[in-house]
């Protein structure tokens, strides 16, 4: 109760004086402008930042949907092209195309043995009786004019070249870079010409190269 007693004893004048002490002595107008400016600037930058943020967000959203659309289109395109490739590489389509070019099924394969001996029967598959007389450029696609021309002019020749090719590779062959396992007598002739290579090396040739050998 002592506080209350003290306040109640204050006279009106002393109370005014005390209140007057709380009021700043000097005028406040000088300090107000920078403060207002500061607030305005703060508010302004905040709003502008927000605006920019929103704008960039929207921009990003547009870009995103654009890129999504592009991805979708490219996926569609990729799938279309893949389907096209698949259609061309399907074995049935390949066989048909090969037949158009005058090729025949290779028949039983033949291989070159480790000692260079021929394994299997390498006699060429007989050419099938020629189909309807081939008219150059008859119903061939425009793109295969050159191929079709040579293929059709001598359809019987192609198979004889093709058959041995397919059959030279040895399944157990290792890549040709691999040095041959100790070949005994053949080891001393590293300079052996391509035509008469070390018998051990022969079967390791990849099919394409092997086709050059007799």
């Amino acid at each position: 109760m002592s506080h209350r007693d003290r306040f109640t004893t204050l006279t009106g004048l002393t109370r005014l004086n005390r209140l007057g002490g709380l009021v700043p002595a000097r005028g406040t107008t000088a300090a107000r402008t920078p403060f207002v400016l500061l607030v305005v600037v703060l508010l302004g930058t905040g709003m502008v930042t927000l605006l920019i943020l929103n704008a960039s967000l929207n921009q990003g959203s547009f870009e995103l949907s654009e890129l999504r659309r592009e991805t979708q289109e490219l996926t569609d395109e990729q799938q279309r092209l893949q389907a096209e490739v698949d259609a061309y590489s399907a074995p049935g389509a390949l066989a048909e195309r090969a037949e158009e070019l005058g090729l025949v099924p290779a028949g039983p394969p033949a291989f070159l043995g480790e000692d260079g001996a021929l394994l299997g029967d390498a006699s060429p598959t007989p050419a099938p009786e020629p189909p309807a007389p081939p008219e150059p450029g008859d119903d061939d696609a425009p793109g295969d004019g050159e191929d079709g021309g040579s293929g059709e002019s001598e359809p019987q020749e192609l198979p004889t070249e093709v058959v041995p090719q397919g059959g030279v590779a040895d399944p157990r062959a290792e890549p040709s870079e691999t040095p041959p396992p100790d070949p005994g007598v053949g080891a001393g002739t590293p300079e052996a010409p391509a035509g008469t290579r070390d018998p051990e090396v022969e079967p390791v040739l990849p099919p394409a190269e092997g086709a050059q050998t007799p």
Binding site: P105, P109, G113, L119, G120, G166, A169, D170
Partner: peptide, 17 residues
């Protein structure tokens, strides 16, 4: 005959000689 000849070729199975 046809399928066997093809399979032997495709699997690169040489004759045993």
């Amino acid at each position: 005959n046809e399928v066997m000849a093809f399979a032997l070729g495709a699997l690169q199975v040489p004759p045993t000689g």
